[in-house]
């Protein structure tokens, strides 16, 4: 029994959740607070992964990061970041597909804080960063946590886009969902059952515990 896929999935999901939360907070704050040209386009764009088939998404990423584009060559040759057929590629696939799941609750949470409360803090002499730290985030944290958990869960289950970008290299890029698919294909029912059981228990526990935490905080 090879537990590398479990290890890789946890690693990819953790890293991708950190990136998703950071990028997602910036995007959802902008969507909730600012009026700027192209806002509608940005909104539609970050929501695309909800409706686009993961394989299509993966194909876009494969083409964008591959050696056939200037951007891909710039990433590889200048920055030394190889995304195609590496675990980092799996992270990018997970980030892109889980972003909308973070942005939706985060945006609603930021909108729920209300402009008056933030303006009150500004008028009491606080800088933008202080307002975010002492008012906006503390008031929005439930929504942000809910979004982060959903993103994490989405990242652990990511299959299509990951397969396209990172491939299925045992011991290098084979994540849990891909290993399950592999096990079923090769008739290894025992491995499939164990991995399915792990991911089921894990997913249920994460959602259940967070749900209690988010609701029962007050």
């Amino acid at each position: 029994m090879d537990f590398f896929p479990l290890y890789l999935t946890v690693k990819v999901s953790l890293v991708s959740t950190v990136i998703t939360v950071a990028v997602g907070c910036a995007v959802s704050l902008a969507l909730a607070r600012k009026v700027f040209p192209g806002k509608g386009v940005l909104d539609a764009l970050v929501m695309q992964p909800l409706v686009i088939p993961p394989t299509v998404l993966g194909y876009y990423l494969l083409v964008a990061f591959g050696r056939s584009t200037g951007f891909g060559r710039f990433l590889g040759d200048t920055l030394g970041i190889e995304l195609v057929f590496t675990w980092k590629g799996a992270v990018v696939a997970a980030v892109i597909s889980s972003l909308p799941l973070f942005i939706q609750p985060a945006r609603a949470a930021f909108e729920g804080v209300g402009a008056d409360v933030e303006n009150a803090a500004r008028l009491l002499g606080r800088t933008e960063w202080q307002v975010l730290r002492t008012i906006t985030f503390p008031l929005a944290w439930r929504g942000l946590l809910a979004g982060a958990v959903m993103s994490f869960a989405r990242a652990t289950g990511e299959f299509g886009a990951t397969l396209m970008v990172a491939g299925n290299i045992p011991g290098r890029t084979q994540t849990l969902p891909i290993a399950i698919y592999d096990a079923v294909q090769s008739g290894d029912a025992q491995s499939a059952n164990v991995l399915v059981a792990i991911i089921t228990v894990f997913s249920f526990a994460v959602i259940y515990i967070t749900g209690r935490f988010v609701r029962g905080g007050r």
Partner: peptide, 16 residues
């Protein structure tokens, strides 16, 4: 706003 030294009481108070 933070440099204006204006005290503002909002209609719905905007308490934290």
């Amino acid at each position: 706003m933070r440099q204006r030294r204006i005290g503002f009481v909002f209609q719905d108070y905007a308490l934290f």
